[in-house]
């Protein structure tokens, strides 16, 4: 009976996916839903916000320097050059979110392929790939990131590549562990007997059975990538001004911490909100995909 329940939870296919237990469990997960709502809001504001505001993010209003938030037309106040902080925040959000999502997509792709191949082939290939993964994990990620960023052109594209290159390992490990246990299942032997090729077995038989854990890891990777981008930009190796990102806004804000604290607080809150939301969603997905959480 337990097995049947799990199976049902594992397959959300066709029209009945809304009724599936996985979706139901996710909807019941309050934090996850909060995360979804917050991320939707943040994304909406970042996409639409800049058009709704009266000022462009690069417009300088030298007389309105250091306007505190909620003064006049300035929702979040202005910075040391009198630029509208709200406009800058939303534009920065576009970049930070984009970097986060793009880095996630790329690192998930790399991690999935490496994990799939390593898990499926085991033996020499698998061992080599997993040792490679482990060796990447040996370096503290931030230092690796900073080293790479110091040598390469720091722009949004490069930062995305660098973050992806330093955060695929976790997905790779998850996928390879998952594949190693699935590989022993009878349906894989059945596919071999059916004459199926390695590619078929990896991508058609095994991969669809690991989407759950991959999605969870990917969601958490977005949070990590946003945080990493903020780190690097804060230290000045990331997105370069005048292009704003949440990280370099913080960098800029530190010299005015006592006079204009909102310059730090506003992007700080944005980063925290986005990162925790993604983490909530990730946790929610993990619980929803784990059929055992349904048991009494």
């Amino acid at each position: 009976m337990t097995a049947a329940v799990e199976q049902r939870a594992a397959s959300s296919t066709g029209s009945d996916w809304l009724k599936s237990r996985t979706v139901k469990r996710f909807i019941r997960h309050r934090l996850a839903i909060t995360g979804v709502i917050m991320i939707s809001l943040i994304t909406f504001m970042c996409v639409v916000g800049p058009w709704l505001l009266p000022y462009n993010m690069l417009e300088i209003h030298i007389r309105d320097r250091f306007t505190p938030p909620l003064t006049g037309d300035y929702l979040f106040g202005t910075d040391e050059m009198g630029r509208d902080l709200a406009a800058r925040l939303f534009m920065a959000g576009r970049i930070s979110l984009m970097v986060g999502v793009a880095a996630m997509l790329l690192s998930t792709l790399i991690g999935t392929v490496i994990g799939l191949v390593a898990g499926y082939f085991g033996k020499v290939t698998g061992t080599l790939l997993m040792r490679l993964t482990d060796s990447f994990l040996c370096f503290p990620q931030v230092f690796l990131l900073l080293t790479l960023a110091a040598f390469l052109q720091p722009n949004a594209f490069m930062i995305t590549l660098i973050i992806a290159a330093t955060s695929w390992m976790e997905v790779a490990r998850i996928v390879s562990a998952e594949i190693r246990s699935l590989r022993e299942r009878d349906f894989v032997t059945a596919a071999k007997i059916s004459g199926a090729s390695h590619t078929w077995i990896m991508f058609r038989e095994l991969l669809p059975n690991t989407v759950g854990p991959i999605i969870v890891a990917a969601t958490l990777t977005v949070a990590k990538a946003i945080l990493l981008e903020a780190y690097v930009s804060f230290l000045g190796y990331g997105i370069q001004p005048p292009l704003p990102s949440w990280g370099n806004m913080l960098n800029n804000a530190q010299q005015f911490l006592d006079t204009a604290p909102w310059l730090a607080i506003v992007p700080g809150v944005a980063i925290t909100a986005a990162v925790t939301s993604f983490n909530f969603i990730g946790d929610g997905l993990r619980d929803a995909l784990d059929a055992r959480s349904d048991m009494p």
Partner: peptide, 30 residues
């Protein structure tokens, strides 16, 4: 010419494949 039937009816079918897909795999390759 040599085929096999397994013990465990739960792990021998891919949970993500419809019966049509499962039954088509051997045909696709053979």
């Amino acid at each position: 010419r040599m085929q096999m039937v397994f013990q465990d009816p739960f792990s021998s079918l891919n949970p993500r494949m419809s019966i049509a897909e499962t039954l088509s795999v051997p045909l696709r390759f053979h």
